[in-house]
Structure formats: C-alpha cells, structure tokens
C-alpha cells in the first residue's frame, strides 16, 4: 500500500457480527399474550431506519420477536417460517406453540459454534388456551415465563416488569391477594409505559412501537376496543386471533 501499511502488518480479522439496537418485550395473560418491539434499527450512533419490524407473526397463535444482530435475526425468522410451512404441508395444521419453542431451541443450538447473535421471545396461545411466553438466549437455552424484556433496554425494563407484573416487593393486603394474571388493558398500559420510559433513557430505542396481541379462541376482544390503530392479522376470526397495535415513539 502507498501508505506503507504493509511494512508493519496489522492483525485484523473480519467481524461477522454487529449490534442493531432496539428492545423487545412480551407478557402473557390468562387467555392472551402481548409481544412488543420498537421499530428503530441502528448501528453505533446512526439510525439506519425508523421502521424495521422486529416482531413477526408466525401462525394465528404464535408471534416471534427477534432482537440483536438484524441480519441474523431476519435470516432466523425466515428459516423458522420455512420450517413452519413444511410442518403445515406435512401435518395440515399449524405447529403448536410449545413445539415451535422447542424447534427454535434446536435451530439456535444447531448454530452453537457460530451462533445467531439474537435474543428471541416467542409469544402466543398454548394448546390448552392459556397465554404463554418463551424466551431464548442466542444459543437456545429457553424457558416458559409470564413476562420478559430483551435487547438494548432490557436492564431498564425488566425490573419495572418484575414490579408491575409479578408485583415484586409489593405486599398484598390480606383480603385481596395479587392477581396471577393481569387484564389485557392493564398489560397494554404497562407495555406502552415501558417503551416510553426506555425511549426516554436509551438512545437505541424509539421511532415506533408495534404491539402484537394474541387472543385465545373464543375470547372477546375486550381490552382492545378503546385502543387506537388496531389491525387484525388473523386468517380465521373463529380461532385464535392476532392483532397489531401501532404507535409512535419519540424520534430523538
């Protein structure tokens, strides 16, 4: 090189990973699940786009949120969707949620030595009609939970959720114990508050918010009627139903 860089060679290795910011979160109710994510995609201090969806509808009762390295995330979602399509062709039905969870763990662990650099949260309705959330680490460790935050603002959101969803550090009055599951309306308020807080204090969070709501078969849309910007995504209004709520977040 004319700049003489060959005379004292530098050790430089191609880094196949980057971080693209953003945050995702999911909460399970008794007969519904909520999966949400912001829509900002960034690299370093640059905002690449204000709308890059991180939450993906897989089936009429399963939604997957993916956060971390966006290229890996998109490829992973693509492969999961392909496996679900193959399952549909083979079995003439959608894969159950717990099976999708195990599929995701297997697919992630399959890349144990060159991992997908992504945190996954799977939300939806279990075969018994209960709301369920599964959260994964990049190499496939997973667990069914009631609520989980992941991504850039995980440290900001998760303790808030512990407090508001699990009622951690709150003593219930003797005559009225804490509810095991919150109503949909309360959950949506907590999700929106979590993201406005995260947007306020974390530079990689903002622009837009997409909240997917999955309702168990036969459950009314109660809790959604007062919400603006709701769009139904389900193919069969008689079965489990999927809705998406779109909101603006601060863009600075």
């Amino acid at each position: 090189m004319p700049d003489g860089s060959f005379s004292h060679p530098q050790e430089r290795q191609f880094n196949p990973y980057t971080e693209n910011g953003g945050t995702i979160l999911a909460i399970a109710g008794a007969d519904f699940s909520v999966v949400a994510g912001d829509t900002r995609q960034s690299e370093g201090y640059s905002i690449q786009t204000r709308y890059a969806p991180k939450v993906h509808k897989l089936t009429d009762r399963a939604v997957l949120a993916v956060n971390g390295f966006a290229a890996d995330g998109n490829m992973f979602v693509k492969k999961v969707k392909q496996r679900l399509e193959w399952y549909r062709h083979a079995h003439a039905k959608d894969m159950p949620l717990r099976a999708i969870a195990r599929l995701i763990q297997t697919m992630l662990y399959g890349q144990r030595f060159f991992p997908y650099y992504v945190y996954n949260i799977l939300g939806g309705i279990e075969e018994d009609g209960t709301g369920a959330i599964y959260s994964f680490d990049p190499v496939g460790s997973y667990e069914r939970e009631t609520c989980r935050a992941a991504g850039a603002a995980m440290a900001l959101v998760q303790p808030f959720l512990d407090n508001q969803i699990y009622f951690k550090n709150q003593q219930a009055p003797a005559d009225s114990p804490h509810p095991v599951h919150l109503p949909l309306q309360d959950v949506l308020s907590i999700v929106i508050d979590s993201f406005t807080s995260a947007t306020e204090r974390h530079i990689e969070v903002g622009d837009g918010l997409e909240i997917y709501v999955i309702l168990a078969k036969g459950r009314s849309a109660q809790g959604l009627e007062s919400i603006r910007n709701v769009q139904e995504m389900s193919t069969n209004p008689e079965g489990d139903r999927v809705f998406v709520i779109r909101r603006e977040l601060k863009k600075d």
Partner: peptide
Amino acid sequence: SEKLFGVAEGL
C-alpha cells in the same frame, strides 16, 4: 444505575 433509570422513569 441502568436498572434504577428504567424503574424510576416508570414510577
């Protein structure tokens, strides 16, 4: 501090 920021911003 990060966790405190998150919870305080919410409460």
